[in-house]
Simulated assay, not measured.
Amino acid sequence: MELDISFMERAFPFLIKAIPVTLFITAVVLLLSFVPAFIMAEKRIGARGPGERLIKLYVSFIRGTPLVLQILLMYALLPSVLNSIVKAMGLQFDVFRGINPLWYAVIVFTLNTTALLSEVFRSAIMSVSEGQMEAGLTIGLTKFQTNVQIIIPQALTSALPNICNLTVNLIKGTSLAFFMGIKDIMAAAKIQAAYGYNYIEAYLEVFILYIIICTIVQVAYKIFEKHVGLYRTVGEEG
């Protein structure tokens, strides 16, 4: 079997143009997930009751079901729910045509990532000595100030390797967004390959692009981890 190099040369620019879509979904999802995940992690650690049990159930559901099933379920269910709400409010708005599927993808991946990220934060916060909070309160800081200035920086340092893994998995997971009609890297590859059935060549290019993107992300996290590593040293000395 010989690869169609000419097809790969023609298709490559189209795949490159789809990279911003993948990176946009990844960046927005991480930004939207960060604060809710941290709040959920704190609730799991410091509280007991219905709220803590609901968070635990939510995390278990996300971790126990395939991402592709979550995408198909939400993409089938969410537009219908929104359409019912719009009709109940008496608004003249076509949910099915008026909302870009990109935002459905952002919602689905945010729900998934928030649950996974909360577990990363929970383990990271628990790795910080309880004496750090007591020390912050002793020197006159409020609980909020102690969290922001002492606990979170140290926890973030511990969490970075797992956050890196989560980010890489999210980038790869966005390849499933083509189920919602979003033209990310995978969708662009399938569209280009369909003309001449050059699926092997198209998937090979996608394979290479994902390796390059994920490698760059891992290197960036490594550099960032070195810069924030000072907090771990300070925490251990304290």
Rank of each mutant, 00 (worst) to 15 (best):
F93I: 09
D94V: 00
Y75E: 03
K87Q: 12
R97C: 00
P50Q: 10
L57M: 12
E52C: 06
G46H: 13
L77A: 13
L67G: 13
R48T: 04
V86P: 01
G46R: 12
L67N: 08
G98T: 13
R97I: 00
P79T: 00
V68F: 09
G46L: 10
L73N: 02
R48E: 01
K56E: 11
S84R: 01
S60Q: 07
F96A: 13
L91V: 15
M89K: 11
L69E: 02
L82A: 06
P50Y: 00
I71R: 07
F93L: 06
L67Y: 09
Y75S: 01
M74G: 12
G46I: 01
F93E: 14
G64F: 02
L69W: 09
A47R: 04
P66M: 11
G46N: 15
L82I: 14
R63H: 02
A88I: 15
Q70E: 11
R97Q: 13
V86L: 00
L78Y: 15
V95C: 00
A47Q: 13
S84C: 01
L78V: 14
L72F: 11
A88T: 10
G90E: 13
L67M: 14
M89Y: 14
E52A: 11
K87A: 01
S60D: 10
I55Y: 10
L78I: 14
S84V: 08
L78T: 08
Q92G: 06
F96K: 14
E52G: 04
L67D: 10
I62V: 15
I71S: 04
L91E: 14
S84H: 07
Y75H: 10
K56V: 00
D94Y: 05
R53N: 02
R48P: 06
P50D: 09
G98E: 09
S60I: 00
N83G: 04
D94M: 08
R53P: 04
V59C: 15
G49Y: 05
M89H: 11
Q92E: 15
L57N: 07
G46T: 07
V81I: 13
Q70K: 12
V95S: 01
P79I: 00
Q70F: 02
V68H: 05
V81T: 05
V68P: 04
I85W: 03
I62Y: 11
F96R: 15
L72T: 02
